[in-house]
Nucleic acid binder design. Structure first.
Lengths: 337, 337
DNA sequence: CTGTTAGCGCATTCAG
DNA sequence: CTGAATGCGCTAACAG
């Protein structure tokens, strides 16, 4: 069976390829009658335009890429939800790439992406990425880029983030007000803006409540959850005075909970924990879980909206289009008192 | 600045386009010296082949599509993880589409996909889909398809599933052995094979343990979580004898937990619940949560592996390549006694 | 080992 | 209103 393409339609209808093409695009310079004939046959044969030929010709792919650390995480999966929603409504396809917070992979992926495969890119950088050369290259190679959550400050483009400084402050203040005096901080990574911001909020809250900032209570996590848990347990063992933990990212919050449980230290009676990011499910079920919840779905939507708008208008994305959304402290029942 | 394509490279090197193309593909019929020159310039100019031109010419896109109900769900996000992993290793790109369990969307997406954009498709059908005409059409239009978890039995292709019947049996038996005598079943959807299988296991377990199957204790959920919760609460109120719940899917399990909490019926003391699927995080934190956990990551990997192998070998996928993996009952501490 | 030629399917000039 | 011709960037068959 011959393939169903414009040529085939043209032959069967005794028309030229050009006319068929125009008819399918509802061009004003084709008679209503012809359009009808073309559409009827196209439907009958289940004609689908070849996306690649079209992309090649028009030099747009109607495809965006999403590069994120992982998907098995409430924040990112909700964000994808928002992104996919917006993309589909605008007729865009979504390619997904996971870095697993690995620098090498991120570099590989960005190279993969340099070359017209996508019209634009939504990105949350890997926490391990210190060097941004690959991102610079990518940026130079043209696709529109919008960062969300884990941004690369070095590139002059729009970023969709949350009020990380304030949230860090809020989380810490919440713990202090609940009676904590020795609050450990679990940092996601020193070279990630969200980590720095949240930590600054943490420090400010301590300071303003008259507490010392103790550098030795700050633990920087890595990609190995098991090891993170061990290190948290070590910290809790060697520093028994710790009565609160502020985890700056979901994975570390979980590791904290597990560490506390394994050490038999009850949450929230003995140790209070505030986990950053969307524990979703868990926080609904276990009242001991206090979380800072980011509006992940909206972040995804906003980032995608900015990106697609720029693509459609063929306009550059400016840093001034950046958006800062608000996170919320979500405690099922107050841990204060 | 002129674009960096083969033509440009060829001009600057005084070679033909064909030679440059061959050199970049490391063809044996190009001198080492020439290859070197080409590669050097390509690197210098950061040449990236145009993926669409290549796809058009070769008639392969090195892209697969993943169509799933949602991503904000441990099962699917883990599966994506596995899929992306396998795909990337083989140099494939992954397009993602979410149906939100909506029939219309699924139809729209499959149409979207009919037309060479993807070389293959991994799919978990929407629970609402009763009609499979769109899938038949898609199947006829050629891309290789592998179903996973929520399969469409009508199509003669490979399916990657878990031992749903046994798991349903196991879950129910677990409740019975823990002392439950009136076990409600929350069905995901009557027209989904996983639902039917799990329910059959549930019925068999009841039967073999000498319990009556009571149709009025079976509740079929829909896409509205809030309403599901209300209906579960209704059921628990009108049928106070219910002392166990077997939820055949993650979302319904969560709604059950919430319903129980709102009614003040303690889990697992007053009501025991077994939730199907990967509650992940939650089950680690709350010992009350008993889950049937599917090997989601492996399911993703396996499905992707079968698909890519078939694509690479240009061979049709046979139903005989189907795989059935095993789920595991995961109770943090036994609810029995 | 290298170049010439043709064409993937489509959108778009330019003619009529 | 319609058709013929051109080329997007790349690969592959065919020469030499």
């Amino acid at each position: 069976m011959p393939p169903v393409n414009l040529k085939r339609l043209a032959q069967e209808l005794n028309l030229s390829i050009a006319t068929v093409s125009r008819a399918l695009q509802d061009s004003y310079e084709v008679s209503a009658h012809t359009k009808e004939r073309v559409r009827a046959l196209a439907a009958e044969l289940n004609y689908q335009p070849n996306a690649y030929a079209s992309s090649l010709r028009r030099n747009v792919s109607k495809t965006i890429g999403v590069v994120i650390p992982e998907v098995n995480n409430h924040f990112f999966s909700l964000a994808i939800n928002g992104i996919e929603e917006v993309a589909r409504q605008s007729g865009y396809h979504v390619l997904i790439y996971l870095t697993h917070d690995d620098y090498e992979r991120e570099v590989g992926i960005t190279q993969y992406l340099t070359g017209g495969r996508v019209d634009g890119l939504l990105m949350s950088v890997a926490s391990e990425s210190r060097e941004f050369e690959h991102l610079q290259k990518l940026y130079a190679s043209k696709p529109a880029i919008v960062f969300f959550d884990r941004v690369c400050e070095a590139l002059p483009t729009a970023k969709v983030t949350t009020n990380d400084y304030e949230s860090g402050y809020l989380a810490t203040a919440h713990l202090i007000e609940a009676g904590c005096r020795h609050i450990a901080h679990l940092l996601v990574s020193g070279n990630l803006s969200i980590g720095r911001m949240r930590m600054q909020g943490y420090q400010a809250a301590l300071r303003e409540h008259g507490l010392e900032f103790d550098e030795t209570l700050v633990l920087t996590g890595d990609a190995d959850d098991e090891r993170n848990k061990e290190r948290i347990m070590d910290l809790l063992r060697t520093r028994p005075e710790v009565d609160g933990i502020f985890a700056s990212v979901e994975r570390l919050a979980l590791s904290s909970y597990q560490a506390c449980k394994e050490l038999g230290r009850a949450i929230p009676e003995q140790i209070k924990v505030v986990g950053f990011s969307n524990l979703g499910v868990a926080s609904l079920l276990d009242p001991a879980l206090t979380t800072i919840t980011q509006p992940a779905y909206d972040i995804g939507r906003q980032a995608a909206t900015i990106l697609l708008r720029a693509i459609e208008k063929k306009k550059a994305i400016l840093p001034s289009q950046s958006v800062v959304l608000k996170s919320e402290l979500f405690a099922r029942r107050s841990t204060a008192r």
